[in-house]
């Protein structure tokens, strides 16, 4: 079941309802933001090689508007966690995430970042979703470039379906159901 199939019962609530122009602005902002993702590649391990392969000309992440890696978190709005995150790296990653400005999204790249992979030990964080809200998980060890592009397109769909406001410094309100679907 896709998360779009969840009945959006909350839209009947008055504070969640959007006017016509609000909705148009939201859609326009979503369209603009999904095609101009500035990536912060937090590459810690061998998945970084695959990230380079996605970024280079064969698979060319620039076709999706995400070609520009910003190595300052303040200029990025997509945090790609590429590789194993161990317990010493976790606070740094958390700090990098907090330094990013809203709106921001997180992609977990590869099984080590997503679930710890086969490093099921005391030194490795068992999935970055223990410290960050993750939007899209990309499996694979390392993922093929096709898998990364699949994940990027999923993220673009998600961004397009979110609500965007002009001048809003608050985090984008998650639709209830994205993380509760598993339950």
């Amino acid at each position: 079941m896709a998360e779009l199939d969840v009945a959006p019962a909350f839209t009947t609530r008055r504070d969640e309802a959007m006017g016509f122009f609000q909705k148009m602005v939201s859609k326009g902002l979503g369209w603009a933001r999904k095609y101009s993702l500035f990536t912060y590649p937090f590459a810690t391990a061998c998945c970084g090689m695959e990230y380079m392969s996605v970024a280079s000309s064969r698979y060319d992440i620039a076709r999706f508007g995400a070609e520009f890696p910003r190595f300052s978190p303040r200029q990025a709005d997509l945090l790609m966690v590429v590789g194993t995150i161990n317990m010493k790296q976790a606070p740094i990653l958390k700090r990098v995430y907090e330094q990013m400005t809203e709106p921001k999204w997180v992609v977990s790249f590869g099984v080590c970042a997503s679930s710890g992979g086969f490093y099921d030990n005391y030194a490795v964080l068992q999935g970055i979703d223990r410290i960050l809200p993750v939007d899209v998980y990309i499996p694979g060890c390392p993922p093929r470039p096709e898998q990364v592009l699949d994940g990027l397109m999923l993220l673009q769909d998600k961004i397009a379906s979110q609500r965007h406001y002009v001048g809003n410094k608050q985090p984008i309100q998650e639709r209830p159901g994205y993380r509760d679907l598993a339950k």
Binding site: E3, S114, S115, G127, D129, D135, V136, Y137, I138, P139, G140, P143, R144, E146, Q147, D150, G151, L154, K158, Y178, R179, L181, A182
Partner: peptide
């Protein structure tokens, strides 16, 4: 076929 990406961990 590669494993598709998902929004949540339950999908895997």
């Amino acid at each position: 076929v590669h494993t598709p990406s998902e929004y949540n961990r339950q999908g895997f």
